[in-house]
Amino acid sequence: MTEMSLTESVAIQGGALGSDAAGRRPRGPKNWRPFMLLIPAFVVVAAFFLAPLIDVFIRSVTDPEPGLQNYEWLFTTKANLAVIWRTFATSIVVTAVCLVLAYPYAYLMTIVSDRTRNLMQLFIMMPLWTSILVRTLAWMVLLQDTGPINGLLAAWFGIGPIPLIRTTFGVGLGMSQVLLPFMVLPLYSSMAKIDKRLLPAAANLGAPPITRFFTVYLPLSRPGIFSGGVTVFILALGFFIIPSLLGSSKEAMISALIQQQISVFLMWGQGTALGVFLLLCTIVILVVVSRFNKGGSLFPGVDR
């Protein structure tokens, strides 16, 4: 390489580096003032959420004495295992019932007129404006042996009285009615984003209705199914009022066991161990479902 060509190449490289450096803006000190606005929120979360969680965990391993005896009690007592199994089984059944009832309702909301859709949304939102205790007391009136449901069964079909209250059926019915809106809203949010031209396009290609549903519509509505299912299932795990009022000791769930250990027996260590176990189950469920729901968000109406 000659001296001239070497000089030209160095000049070209120097010019490129100079233009690149000129295009870059010098980095100045970061402005942390916007983040200062988040300090009150962090303080509130730390004071009213993180601190109690830390206290609960510490109590679970230190009360009445340091060690893991509370967790050993949790997993070695048959009554506790039965309550845990009942809680998860009831939550799964309630989630499945809500999905079966909410899916066609949410789909219908996407194809009706705006006025009818607003009316259907009002029917879904109205129960959320009523206290859960009031709704549970109303179910107690309806489901009792001398209530309106058994009265209608006896008058129309000559059946009854059928035990509806203090049963697993009554608990599941009350929980499904309360949690149904939490399944409908995520499903509708997901279905509203589906292109309505896809199903006619699949029909033009010769796909029958069942094939169109299972290969086109159902996969596209999967984010709503996941988000609604997770929301309903996690809320069902912590229900206390409905199982206590509509059920009996045979329908007791983890929340009732926590209340019994802390309020009745004053066994804070065992009660907090149950709470930590329930929290860890919730975290594991969220992690597992997020792995399967890679194409969507677990939060209704929020895209990744």
Rank of each mutant, 00 (worst) to 15 (best):
S60M: 01
T136V: 00
R135I: 01
S263L: 09
L17A: 14
G15F: 01
L278N: 07
N31I: 04
K30D: 06
F123E: 11
L245I: 01
V302D: 05
Y107R: 14
P104D: 04
L142S: 07
R24I: 08
A203D: 12
I12G: 00
P26I: 12
Q144I: 00
R166E: 13
L153D: 08
G228T: 00
T231Y: 06
R135L: 06
L37P: 05
P40V: 02
S227K: 06
L278G: 07
F123Q: 13
V93F: 09
L108A: 15
A51H: 03
R222D: 04
V230C: 07
L218M: 12
I111M: 13
V141S: 14
R24A: 15
V134K: 03
V216D: 01
P40R: 02
A192I: 08
I258E: 00
S249N: 11
I54L: 13
L180N: 03
Y105N: 11
A51Q: 04
L6D: 02
G28M: 08
C98K: 04
G158F: 02
T146P: 06
T110A: 09
I241A: 08
F213H: 09
V56W: 00
N204R: 02
L235P: 05
P163L: 07
I92C: 13
N31Y: 03
P163N: 14
L257K: 13
Q260D: 09
A82E: 14
N150D: 11
G206K: 01
L180V: 02
V93K: 12
I165Y: 02
V284I: 11
G158S: 12
L237F: 05
L257P: 02
L108D: 06
K193H: 06
L38M: 14
A203E: 12
Q121S: 15
F213W: 10
L179H: 07
S190I: 01
L205M: 11
M4E: 06
T167S: 14
L152I: 10
T110N: 10
E65R: 10
S248G: 15
P161I: 03
S190E: 06
M267N: 13
R135D: 04
